[in-house]
């Protein structure tokens, strides 16, 4: 019984681990928050986990370097729906697939009597990963170390138009590019004294290039991205758990035809609090938010004001991950 409770708590905490923001790829917020969907570090052998996450990113702030500017002209938001599948191939090897549906909204001309709204929606890019547990968490050696790698697949559309004209990359649901994704996860538990779980995740996205326009050689590449997250999670009461994370994110400059673009790239530090509730042995839900506490952007860019997300997970075997 104690063991089952511990497992359930660890499950809750593990799905709260919400590693990489990739909320908005700076102002150029094309694509989905794919890395952030990697909420499962590993699944037990033969276990199948499904998850669906809805995320809302409010992108109202305007920054120049570390200074916030008065932004009266533009309001943006991105809504993402992510479908996750995780399957434990062996005790140590987990396959993960994430697929997305993206809705973007850009309202401009807020300073004028009539603003202009452009919306796009469509399937975004997908992410497939293999994760391998190098060290399993045991009662005698209470830490887990996992690494992973995969590819972001350009399922997403990136040729949406407005009045017949192709929209900028940051309004496209997809990026059109293949990216390489590398991931690591380290956690530490302290059973039986406490159900506290400390963890550290790191992600790196090596971006590829996309030809955005079929009639010209106009290639576009989003900047590489590093995300590092430190977090702590624990049981609150009953089936309710929390996780609190501090996330550092650094994005390189976007490039067009090999030349770096101004007003792209930057560094962010965000706080990411989350709550999770185990509804049944198999079903859990999670809500989380993301609040920026430090931003240092290259040039002048719109950036995320806050993010909110909610998830539901279904664990077919009603047991384990780790």
């Amino acid at each position: 019984m104690i063991k089952n409770t511990s497992i359930a708590t660890l499950f809750l905490i593990s799905i709260l681990v919400y590693p990489a923001g990739l909320i908005a790829q700076t102002c150029g917020c094309a694509g989905a928050p794919l890395l952030s969907s990697q909420s499962i570090s590993s699944a037990a052998q033969g276990n199948l986990l499904l998850g669906i996450t809805y995320e809302y990113d409010n992108i109202d702030d305007l920054y120049q370097g570390t200074n916030e500017l008065d932004n009266r002209s533009v309001r943006r938001s991105t809504q993402s729906t992510l479908f996750e599948v995780h399957y434990g191939i062996t005790d140590r090897l987990t396959a993960s697939g994430t697929f997305t549906f993206i809705n973007k909204r850009r309202e401009t001309g807020l300073q004028t009597p009539s603003s202009n709204v452009v919306r796009t929606e469509g399937f975004g890019d997908g992410l497939v990963m293999l994760k391998y547990v190098l060290h399993k968490n045991t009662i005698r050696s209470q830490y887990q170390l996992a690494v992973g790698g995969g590819a972001k697949i350009p399922f997403g559309s990136f040729d949406h138009t407005n009045n017949g004209l192709q929209l900028n990359a940051d309004m496209q649901p997809g990026t059109g590019a293949w990216d390489g994704v590398f991931w690591s996860y380290l956690s530490k538990t302290f059973a039986p004294h406490t159900t506290l779980n400390l963890f550290w995740t790191n992600s790196f996205r090596l971006t590829g290039e996309a030809d955005r326009f079929s009639n010209t050689n106009d290639s576009y590449r989003f900047g590489n991205e590093i995300v590092s997250t430190l977090g702590a999670g624990n049981k609150l009461v009953g089936n309710l758990s929390y996780v609190f994370q501090v996330q550092y994110r650094q994005v390189g400059k976007n490039e067009r035809n090999g030349s770096e673009l101004p007003n792209t790239g930057g560094k962010w530090i965000d706080l990411v609090p989350a709550l999770s509730y185990q509804l049944t042995d198999k079903v859990s839900m999670r809500v989380s938010g993301q609040l920026p506490v430090y931003r240092d952007l290259v040039g002048t860019q719109s950036t995320t004001t806050y993010s909110l997300s909610g998830s539901i997970f279904y664990n077919f075997d009603g047991k384990t991950i780790f």
């Binding site: 401009t108 001309g109 192709q166 309004m171 010209t216």
Partner: peptide
């Protein structure tokens, strides 16, 4: 085919 959306949108640059 040579018209580009620069990114800021209509009146996005005030």
């Amino acid at each position: 085919s040579e018209i580009r959306d620069g990114g800021p949108g209509r009146d996005g640059i005030p």
